[in-house]
């Protein structure tokens, strides 16, 4: 554990809490892509099937929180606050993300076993899982500030992991190419959003895309 990884995990946790609180407090999931949230639930489920492999209390606890929170979010969007779900704007075709991620996981993995292929699939899937949400923001041309904070915290987490991987490579000689390449792709997808967040949201303006 190093500072980049810890802050990255906390940023990830913060993102999940912001989203749950936003939906709970406003009793609405307007502006939130249910499709991205389903993809995240798939990501955590397929990645944390290795839960019986005990690493640490921290590791186990975080995995359980991520899985539980992702299902709770999907439940709030598709069941409890279904009436507020903006499905007309959530039209990204997720099969174009799920199928290629799965095929790539079958082709490029560390070990051709069920658990390892599913872990690899989750890494590829996570790198693009936010696309339906970003697509929704670009389609409506705007995002509420709280949604922007959520996206910023979620995007920062993988960027911090990149620093963690550099640190681990230099100090422990440890690296995992699959996670590194996918993590870079994931972070790059947020770049456009990061720019808008820093130039607009942090200056108190609403995140609004140029017409």
């Amino acid at each position: 554990m190093n500072i980049f990884r810890l802050v990255g995990d906390l940023s990830h946790l913060l993102a999940i809490i912001i989203l749950l609180l936003k939906i709970w407090k406003t009793r609405s999931c307007a502006g939130i892509s249910g499709k991205s949230q389903i993809l995240f639930a798939i990501v955590y489920t397929s990645r944390y099937l290795d839960l019986p492999n005990f690493v640490s209390m921290y590791n186990t606890l975080m995995k359980i929180v991520f899985i539980a929170a992702s299902y709770a979010t999907v439940y709030l969007i598709y069941m409890k606050f279904k009436a507020t779900y903006d499905h007309n704007h959530d039209t990204f075709r997720v099969e174009f993300l799920v199928l290629p991620s799965f095929v790539l996981a079958l082709l490029i993995n560390h070990d051709f076993t069920v658990l390892e292929v599913l872990w690899t699939f989750s890494i590829y899937m996570e790198s693009v899982a936010i696309l339906p949400q970003l697509f929704m923001v670009s389609k409506t041309g705007e995002a509420e500030s709280i949604t922007s904070h959520y996206l910023f915290a979620l995007g920062s987490y993988r960027a911090l992991y990149i620093l963690n991987w550099i640190y681990r490579y230099t100090t422990e000689d440890h690296y995992d190419l699959i996670a590194i390449v996918a993590g870079i792709v994931q972070t790059v997808l947020y770049c456009d959003f990061f720019y808008l967040y820093i130039t607009k949201v942090l200056k108190g303006k609403k995140l609004q895309l140029p017409a």
């Binding site: 590791n59 995995k63 440890h174 690296y175």
Partner: peptide, 10 residues
């Protein structure tokens, strides 16, 4: 090296 036996990251 890349030890994929146990993924210690989240």
């Amino acid at each position: 090296s890349s030890d994929f036996d146990i993924h210690d990251e989240l």
